Amino acid sequence: MALGNHSAITEFILLGLSADPHVQALLFVLFLVIYLLTLMGNLSHLSFLDLCYSSVTVPKLLENLLSQKKTISVGGCLAQVFFVFVPGGTEVCLLSVMAYDRCVAICHPLHCRQIMTNRLCNSLVRGSWSLSILDAFIYILEAMSLDFCEDQYIPHYSCELPSLFPLSCSEVSTSFTVLLCSSVVHGLGTCLLIVFSYVLIASTILTISSSSGRGKAFSTCSSHLTAILLFYGSGFLRYLIPTSGSPLELIVSVQYGVVTPLVNPLIYSLKNNEVKAALRRTFRKYLQDR
C-alpha cells in the first residue's frame, strides 16, 4: 500500500449491530442458536457453501457481541472479504447450474441422464469454484491496493468490500469499477442464465395438459426458486444500498449472511415427504396437548 504522508492503521473497529450490552447478549444467544442449527442442518454441497459462508462472519460477530474490544486487524478484515466472496460467488454459480439441471429434467425428461452426466456435473461444480476463487482474488488484490488511514470505524458487523471504500484515503474509483464490472458479469450473468432456464421451464410446463402434471413440475422448482429469491434479493439489495450503517443495510446483511444459510436446508428439507410427515405429526401432537 502506498501510504504517502498518512499514518497507516493496523486494525478496524466493527461497530456491530448494537451498543446496548443487554441487546448484545440477546443477539449473541440468537445468532449462536442460528449458527448451531446451520451447522447441524447443512449436509449437501450447496448447503456446505451456506455453512462456509456463515462461518466466515458469524463467529467473529459472536465474539464481538461479548467483547469490549470489537476490533479486527486489517489483514483479518481483508481475509474476511476474500472468504465471503468465494462461497458467495460459488453459490451464485451453483444456483444457475441447478436451474439448468431443472430445465433439462422438465424440458428433456427422457434424455436427462444422458445430458446431466456425473462428469458434466462435476465439471460444472469445479468451474463454479474456480470462477469464484478467481473473482475473489481480483477483489482482494484491489482491496490490498487501497490506502487505509485515520478512520477505523466500520458501521457493520463484518468486513465487506463496499464498507472499506469509505475508509480509504486513496483513489477508489478504479477498485470500484473493477468490483462493479466483475459483479455485473458474475452476478447478472448467472441471473440471466437462471431467468432463461425458467423461461424454457415455464413454456414447457404450460404445454402439459394435466393439472396434476403441471403442479408436479412446478413443485420440482419451488424450493430452488425460493432459495434464489432469498439469496439474490438480499444480495442485490445489500450491494445497491449505499454503505451507511443504516438499520435497513444491517437487516439485509443479517438476512443473507446469517438467516439464509439456516433457511436454505429447511427449504429443501420440506420437499422430503418424510420431513413433511414428521412436521405434521409434531403439529398434530402439539394441538392435541393443548
Rank of each mutant, 00 (worst) to 15 (best):
S210L: 11
Y268R: 12
C107F: 00
T38F: 04
G187N: 02
S253R: 03
Y35F: 15
W129K: 05
S67C: 13
F82T: 11
Q80C: 03
D289V: 15
K285E: 08
L200E: 06
S67D: 04
L230P: 06
T10W: 01
A8L: 10
Q255A: 15
S96D: 03
K276Q: 07
L229F: 04
T10S: 07
L240C: 12
A217Q: 02
G233H: 05
S175R: 06
V185C: 12
R281A: 11
L250F: 01
R284Q: 12
Y53A: 06
H111F: 10
Y239H: 12
V97H: 05
L134C: 15
C112K: 13
I201S: 07
H6D: 12
P155T: 05
H156L: 13
L39A: 10
L3S: 09
G16A: 09
K271M: 07
L65Q: 03
L167W: 05
H108P: 02
Y232A: 07
C221Q: 00
N273L: 11
S219L: 12
V86R: 09
G233N: 03
H156K: 13
S209R: 13
C93T: 00
V23I: 14
V23P: 07
S96N: 00
L95Q: 06
G89D: 01
C191A: 15
L62V: 13
S55D: 07
Y286G: 13
V29C: 13
I201Y: 06
P21N: 12
A2M: 09
